[in-house]
Every structure is written in structure tokens, then in C-alpha cells.
Design a protein around this nucleic acid. Sequence first.
DNA 1: AATGTGAATGTAATGTTATTACATCAATTG
DNA 2: CAATTGATGTAATAACATTACATTCACATT
Lengths: 131, 131
Amino acid sequence: MTTQQLTKNQGLVFDVLSHSDSPLSAYTILDKLRDNGFRAPLQVYRALDKLLEFGLVHRLESINAFVACAHPNEGCHNHGITAFTICETCGKVTEFHDHVIEDRLKAFAKDRNFKTGKTTIEIRGTCAGCA
Amino acid sequence: MTTQQLTKNQGLVFDVLSHSDSPLSAYTILDKLRDNGFRAPLQVYRALDKLLEFGLVHRLESINAFVACAHPNEGCHNHGITAFTICETCGKVTEFHDHVIEDRLKAFAKDRNFKTGKTTIEIRGTCAGCA
DNA sequence: AATGTGAATGTAATGTTATTACATCAATTG
DNA sequence: CAATTGATGTAATAACATTACATTCACATT
């Protein structure tokens, strides 16, 4: 999935997220795109829904915010479960993938016949630079 | 931590959560406690803050809802990172603790000098009974 | 070029979740 | 008893997200 097949609104939203050094809320994105004709939250949420679907963007559940994927050209969906550290001081987000954790969670779910949908792993704290 | 040293509001909120078979939103709790004199969201949020602090209740970040801890008498804070499966059909939540996952996350954080605060692990999907 | 279809968009209104601000009350302690 | 601290009550507002409905755009088929 490259960024070329995105629609205008999807492209604008992805661009804003890509150029941000910290996660953004939907309403912050909206404000940044007012000059581009955005008027309503739904324009942002609809674009985000598609970007999430494409694996170009991640939603950080614990802070109600969105970040561009760290490796959008590869399609993040290929990498299995995505985990994040989120610095509560500077907002810096680091995305990582750990197959051991993934296997462990899968095994737990399998043992209980739990059919896994989306998995969230988020570590909030303080990054090295802010400590 | 037993339930005895809770204040009136904390006790009421904990009671509602304890008797629910699925997670509840703050506003749902508020509605259930109207007859007990609750009038405003803040009464619920303040009680929840304390219950979270005591380890008697967990917040499910991915669905903006709250559940009573599965083993409140032991103080969940003693069990390290808490993970959950959340059935999107029936709402059933299962709490579990996995030291391998915990060690792995701790190691990742340590490697990057990331000071870990709260960690969220939530698997949403479909439970065995709903499949 | 006209038409049909599905995806994307525009807009308003509303619903849901959470916090700020400020006043009051209750328990404890010096 | 005064002072402090934690809990509570209440109103207002902020922040996040969805529903509903009308319109437009892209594109395939005729």
C-alpha cells in the first residue's frame, strides 16, 4: 500500500500525521486541515477509518489519538501485533513488534477458544530523553 | 485491600461493577446509582479513580469501560501487568497475567531507557460461547 | 455521451466520555 | 477549637465520536 491510491481527504490526513512528531487527536487533525476545506469531524474520522484499514495509521487506544505507521510502505498488517511505547512527557511514540509476545497471546486465546480480533499493547511512561 | 475501607461512593461504584457480568461505562454506572443519590459524572469518576488506585477496578482503554478486578482481595497490583480478553459480542472480560509477556515488555523498555508507567494489553474478539 | 453503481464527501445534529471550577462537608490532628 | 486534608455536591464545559441525510465523484457499461 503506497500513499498514491489515497483519496484527497485520506491523503491530507495521512500527510498531517506523517509530519507530526507525536500522536494527534482527530480534532487536532481537523484544526490543521481547516485551511484545506475540512469543516467537520466526520471528514477526519472517515479518512482515519480507511487509513487504519490500510495499515497506514495506528490508533492509540489509551490516549485517543492517532499516529502514522512507522513503516507504511510495507503495510503494517504484515507485521502482526503492533505494540507501542508512548512518552507522556513529549508524546514520542515508538512502535515495535515482538513475536514472543504475539505467540504468547495467540496461545492464550487459542487455549480458550477466543477468536482474536484487534489486539492493543501500549506502554505509557517516560522516554529516555525526558527522564 | 478489602472493600471495607471504601467511602460510601467508592463502595457503591465497586458494588455495581462487582455485580455486573460485563464492563460498564462511567455513565452507565451513574445511571445505576441515580437512586442512591448520584447526580453527576464526577461522582462516578472520582470513585473510579480511587478504585483504580487501590487495584480493585480496571479500566479497559479500548472500550472506555470499567470492570471489577478478578481477585480484588489480593490487590491486583501484586500481580504485575494485567491483560484482558474482551468479547465484543457478549461483553465478557477475562483477566490474565503472563510473566513471559511482562518480562518481554520490561526488557524492551529497559533496553531503551523507557520508564514504564501503566501498560495496557487488551485482546478484543469473540469468546468461546459466542463463536 | 448518457446512465447506473458504489465509494467518497459535505453538513448538521446529536451522542458519549471526561474534566474544570468552585462550594461544601466530614474526619483527623496539632 | 482551628487547621488541614480528603471526600462530596453541583454546574458547566471540554473532548471524543457517531448518526442521518443529501450530494458529488470515479468509473464501468451501454
